[in-house]
Design a protein around this nucleic acid. Structure first.
Length: 292
DNA sequence: TTATTCGGAAATTAAAAACA
DNA sequence: GTTTTTAATTTCCGAATAAT
């Protein structure tokens, strides 16, 4: 923060990075491919354009990239919850504790989470897959919100069920190829992504049944039901799919998602909630006509 | 020898938590 | 409200490697 200007030059902005899109991967053909940022060298020249490095390399020099936002995202209590969870696991292993829910409630083993079914790496690749392939046609969830839910899933059953449902949806609907090195149990590597998706769907449904989510619906629970609906359609279990669609629509109604005033304070999510609500509304309409 | 690459330390920044 | 802490991104040092 306090750079001594008499002895050290202040850090300047390096000429262009790969892309302006925050989540994209570097693309070798981008004009910024040989920039100081890419080369990890000091951008020489008092903010001049072109900078001296680009001049000597005979390259175009631009400063078009929009920097990403810095700083923590989502809850910061990640480390603390990780420590708590480690301690809990150790005590569980030693047989000192009954299995507790991540919301602090005691869980019967019927509703406890399955261990090792969904490693963090797999969550990340499912999210990547979702936002590069599925999201374009159904932008119902903001990437940053999804990332926050993924971080919170350790301690929030609601976030856990939504993320597991999202992963199941990706695997069932798109038949995403699961990289085998991401699977913590070697025996899982043998099964198809459809089967793994089915297992994840059942896990999410089972764990959610241990909560009273119906009494306090949220955007997350609506999304979870929506993903269940998509999963069951993918599995050709249409009647179950319709039930979850109606559940999602009812929760959305209870939440007041039809009234944009209720979520105008959340600019990050407003368009996603709008899309989700209208998607549910139209699907419900379609369902009513189809069954009448 | 000089040029280039890239691991990672240090600097920077902003959000969350703690405090008054 | 302000301050502190934490966690994220960005810059670019300097060792390793490649090219001449």
């Amino acid at each position: 923060m306090s750079s001594n200007s008499t002895t050290t030059a202040p850090v300047k902005r390096a000429c262009d990075r790969y892309e302006t899109c925050s989540t994209s991967h570097p693309h070798p053909t981008d004009s910024g491919d040989h920039s100081c940022h890419r080369r990890k060298v000091k951008c020489i020249g008092e903010g001049t354009n072109p900078c001296k490095n680009c001049v000597s390399a005979g390259l175009a020099c631009t400063y078009n990239a929009i920097p990403q936002k810095k700083g923590p995202k989502g809850s910061r209590a990640k480390v603390l919850s990780e420590l708590r969870e480690n301690q809990r696991s150790a005590q569980l292993a030693a047989g000192f504790l009954p299995d507790m829910g991540f919301d602090g409630r005691a869980l019967s083993s019927t509703f406890a989470r399955a261990q090792g079914l969904l490693p963090a790496g797999l969550v990340d690749s499912c999210l990547d897959f979702f936002f590069t392939n599925v999201y374009l046609s159904t932008p119902v969830l903001h990437r940053q919100k999804a990332q926050e839910a993924a971080v919170n899933m350790e301690r929030s059953t609601e976030a856990y069920c939504m993320i597991v449902a999202l992963c199941a949806y990706v695997m069932i609907q798109t038949n995403m190829k699961v990289p085998t090195q991401m699977l913590s149990r070697p025996e899982i590597a043998q099964v198809s992504s459809m089967t793994l998706g089915h297992a994840l769907l059942e896990e999410s449904v089972r764990v959610r049944n241990g909560t009273d989510f119906r009494e306090s619906p949220t955007h997350t629970t609506v999304l979870t039901s929506w993903f269940y609906c998509g999963c069951y359609f993918g599995l050709a279990r249409e009647n179950t799919a319709w039930v979850y669609l109606r559940e999602a629509a009812t929760q959305a109604q209870l939440l007041g998602m039809h009234d944009e005033e209720t979520y105008k304070h959340d600019p990050l999510d407003i368009s996603r909630k709008r899309v989700l609500y209208w998607l549910l509304f139209m699907a419900e309409r379609f369902a009513t006509r189809g069954h009448s």
